[in-house]
Design a protein around this nucleic acid. Structure first.
Length: 363
DNA sequence: GAAACGTGGGG
DNA sequence: TCCCCAAGTTT
């Protein structure tokens, strides 16, 4: 008798019961588990996308203090929202969340929709987040398939699909539809993720502590360490930049708002240019860029040094210069001259915070 | 379907 | 140092 190669042979009733019982006993005490307010669940799910729990917790508390309700977030200035998200990364999450919250206010009378079709139309709410909100806030048995769930189920059901491929998600959604508890969809979905976070970890899973190891095909076959199958991503592309921190005579600093789309959209920055190789005509190139692209006359001084910042897809190496404003600044919407204390109120991405520390050490 | 989109932590 | 990762979505 051969074992089936994929899926199937587990006692679903017993699996659910063991998994949920473990979750009810062992779940972490997390701030978004205090109640089932759909708005708060929503905020937490957006913040948790590709982001660690420990990182999210302080942001979650501050965000809900600033924007406690859908109306509060809907009415806020986007700048305040971005500032609250500063340092969390993937900033389109914040802009999409606010846009979606405004849609809920205007179109759904302030009530987060409880149907898969409607909730999935909201900006920033993809298949995972839709399922998470529906199941956790509303108790609706929809799959919420994230990286944890794919890893856990790849082991339990011995699924060898490459979980890095977008198409694989559907395989796991179908698996969850077969397995999910209709009595406690919230606990079931959260339990799968919690198991992935605490026990069924990417490397060296704690199978001896696992509440469902008797249901786990990979454990029975001793292949849990070889799962999930996941192709690796490519390295970030190297980019050389030269940036200038421009001062006026009162020690104020020039910042610019980045474009509304793309990398670090709508954040503020010290203007910079891409260069071909280090130290080649940086000063002339920067002065020309400021003059021709920004309409600002500056004189570049010495270099303060370099900073490095690695994004998911880019590896920035930035040579940072100090410069003096040579003519008074003309009024422009995307350019500001701000004091150091004022600068703290603007949303500044981490690489530019690094540049600012170089500057602060210098002065 | 691949690439864009951030950041900080851990092995 | 380097690589992988962490409760994904959009284009």
């Amino acid at each position: 008798m051969n074992q089936p190669e994929i899926t199937g042979n587990i006692n679903i009733e017993q699996f659910r019961e063991d998994l949920i019982a473990w979750f009810r006993a062992e779940q972490r005490d997390l701030p978004w588990r205090a109640d089932q307010d759909p708005y708060k669940i929503w905020v937490s799910e957006i913040m948790l996308q590709q982001t660690r729990v420990d990182t999210v917790i302080p942001y979650y508390h501050r965000f809900l203090e600033l924007f406690p309700t859908i109306d509060a977030l809907a009415e806020a200035d986007e700048d305040k929202v971005l500032k609250a998200w500063e340092g969390l990364g993937y900033y389109s999450r914040a802009r999409n969340l606010q846009s979606a919250v405004r849609e809920v206010r205007d179109k759904y009378n302030g009530v987060v929709p409880d149907s898969p079709k409607e909730i999935s139309k909201l900006k920033g709410v993809g298949p995972y987040t839709a399922g998470a909100i529906l199941s956790i806030a509303y108790g609706i048995p929809e799959p919420a398939v994230d990286g944890n769930v794919m890893r856990v189920l790849s082991r339990i059901l011995l699924i060898r699909e490459d979980i890095a491929k977008p198409a694989s998600r559907k395989i796991f959604e179908e698996a969850v539809r077969r397995l999910i508890s209709h009595e406690s969809p919230s606990d079931f979905n959260q339990a799968l993720m919690e198991l992935g976070a605490l026990i069924c970890t990417p490397t060296s899973p704690s199978c001896l502590l696992c509440p469902v190891r008797e249901h786990c095909i990979a454990f029975h076959e001793g292949v849990q360490a070889q799962l999930p199958v996941k192709s690796k991503k490519k390295k970030p592309k190297q980019v050389l930049l030269a940036a200038a921190i421009v001062e006026d005579q009162d020690g104020r600093i020039l910042i610019r708002r980045r474009p509304a789309e793309g990398l670090l959209a709508n954040f503020w920055e010290f203007p910079s240019i891409e260069i071909q190789r280090p130290y080649a005509n940086d000063r002339e190139a920067l002065e020309r860029f400021y003059r021709e692209e920004l309409g600002v006359k500056v004189a570049i001084d010495e270099s303060l040094g370099q900073i490095q910042h690695i994004f998911s897809h880019l590896d920035w190496n930035v040579t940072v210069y100090v410069a003096q404003l040579a003519k008074p600044l003309e009024d422009k919407e995307n350019l500001r001259l701000v004091s150091l204390p004022e600068l703290a109120g603007f949303a500044l991405p981490v690489p530019h915070q690094k540049m600012l520390s170089l500057y602060s050490v210098k002065i």
